[in-house]
């Protein structure tokens, strides 16, 4: 299983509709709206890189998405 963060920059005023669409996507484990350099962080969980490309593609197709940066998780420590 591959996990990745997809950091998204949005065009102003399009976030609400874009998030509704992102919530329907398969392989999306978590979505956070954040304040700062990025607007949305999506955590994707996929079986292989092909599926990750598929998720990234679908996100880039959503209206209002200006730019995505994908960060593949190599190692993780977490409380939960």
């Amino acid at each position: 299983m591959i996990s990745a963060y997809i950091l998204i920059t949005m065009h102003p005023g399009k976030s609400d509709k874009a998030i509704k669409e992102m919530r329907q996507l398969d392989n999306v484990a978590k979505i956070s709206i954040i304040a700062g350099e990025y607007d949305i962080v999506v955590r994707a969980q996929v079986k292989n890189l092909e599926e990750l490309l598929d998720v990234t593609d679908k996100i880039q197709m959503i209206e209002g998405v200006s730019k995505t940066t994908t960060q593949i998780i190599e190692k993780e420590i977490s409380l939960q």
């Binding site: 990745a4 963060y5 593949i72 190599e74 993780e76 420590i77 977490s78 409380l79």
Partner: peptide, 9 residues
């Protein structure tokens, strides 16, 4: 609560 090492930016 989470620390991840990531490849990318």
């Amino acid at each position: 609560s989470h620390v991840t090492i990531t490849s990318g930016k």
